[in-house]
């Protein structure tokens, strides 16, 4: 079996809110990502998926646990190795309006990494940028323009070109399409898939849109209140979701098909997300779970392989019970 390119081990990220309160945004998640695959990370707002992404790329320090990229702990890298890591892992952000500097030309935005890492200058810098623009479906003439002159979809392409400039191995895409119109979403997703094939990229795709995540991902992890609830191959996860939260998410995700929408059985998740400052004891999901039992309030369910390659943390699956 191939070695994972990314190993996340018991990763925790806490934020000190004030003297007495600590917010555990990511509370001990573990997963691996293999070279060339797309790993989808889904969950509702506040589940910690973006914090996880930002901690993995070392925008945040880890509070506990570790992230290994190519076998090296990304939070311990120094000097040359750190610089190399900064090139090899890149990020695409959600909001293409906020993530591009409005005062820079597209050329300077895309070339910023080239300049910092002293990869190219002068003519070759220009040529690299032109080539990247072509790659993402824009053209040379766009290089001298400013971000406000572009539509949302085009800006997202510029963000992708900027990430590609570093010739990364691994790209974290944090909700890259949720700010875009439906027809444009498909353009950007197709582009990302094409680039993955051509360049052998590995993606961590963070999103809340379940149908898009299923379509783009090889494997999917479902997060809830800082914890991983379930992880499986995307087909498997959608065919046989084990965790009640995943079941609820899948059955309430709108599907663009009226007959299916009428026929399917809906599992409603009641109530709202509890405050992450004061999460429920035991299983985090128990306050909204249709199957909650006494044990759920007392004991944290273990992270177990309920079926081959299908992991879940839920007391409905006997092995999850620590006793």
């Amino acid at each position: 079996m191939t070695k994972p390119i990314l190993e996340v081990k018991n990763l925790e990220k806490t934020f000190q809110i004030d003297r007495n309160r600590v917010l555990k945004a990511v509370d001990g998640i573990s997963f691996e990502v293999f070279p060339g695959e797309t790993f989808g990370l889904v969950g509702e707002s506040g589940c910690g998926k973006s914090t996880a992404g930002r901690t993995i790329i070392n925008l945040y320090d880890a509070s506990n646990g570790e992230v290994l990229f190519d076998g090296k702990n990304v939070h311990r890298l120094k000097g040359k190795n750190q610089k190399k890591f900064r090139r090899e892992m890149q990020m695409i952000f959600q909001d293409p309006y906020a993530s591009l500097n409005p005062r820079k030309t597209v050329m300077d935005i895309i070339a910023e990494g080239l300049d910092i890492h002293e990869i190219a200058n002068g003519r070759s810098r220009e040529e690299v940028v032109y080539e990247l623009l072509e790659t993402v479906g824009l053209n040379k003439s766009h290089a001298t323009r400013y971000p406000h002159e572009f539509s949302g979809g085009q800006r997202q392409r510029i963000g992708i070109a900027r990430a590609l400039a570093m010739e990364p191995k691994f790209i974290i895409a944090d909700e890259p399409i949720s700010a875009l119109d439906v027809s444009v979403q498909a353009q950007v997703v197709n582009l990302m898939r094409k680039l993955q094939k051509e360049k052998g990229l590995t993606y961590l795709f963070i999103a809340h849109d379940l149908s898009m995540v299923k379509y783009i991902s090889d494997r999917v992890g479902v997060m809830y209140l800082g914890r991983m609830a379930e992880l499986a191959d995307s087909e498997e996860l959608y065919d046989d979701p084990l965790h009640p939260y995943t079941q609820g998410l899948l059955s309430t995700a709108p599907i663009p098909d009226p007959v299916q929408a009428r026929q399917r059985e809906k599992i409603r998740i009641k109530g709202e997300l509890p405050s992450p400052l004061d999460p429920p004891s035991g299983c985090r999901f128990r306050t909204r779970c249709p199957h909650a039992m006494a044990v759920c309030a007392q004991v944290d369910p273990l992270w177990v392989e309920a079926k081959p390659n299908h992991w879940v943390a839920c007391h409905l699956y006997p092995k999850s019970n620590p006793q």
Partner: peptide, 24 residues
């Protein structure tokens, strides 16, 4: 047609591209 095709369906296989509408 374009709008409907550009939304992935849950039964969509991964080997086909999404039909996107070019341009804006």
């Amino acid at each position: 047609w374009g709008l409907l095709a550009s939304m992935p369906r849950l039964d969509q296989t991964r080997d086909q591209d999404l039909a996107s509408i070019p341009g804006s």
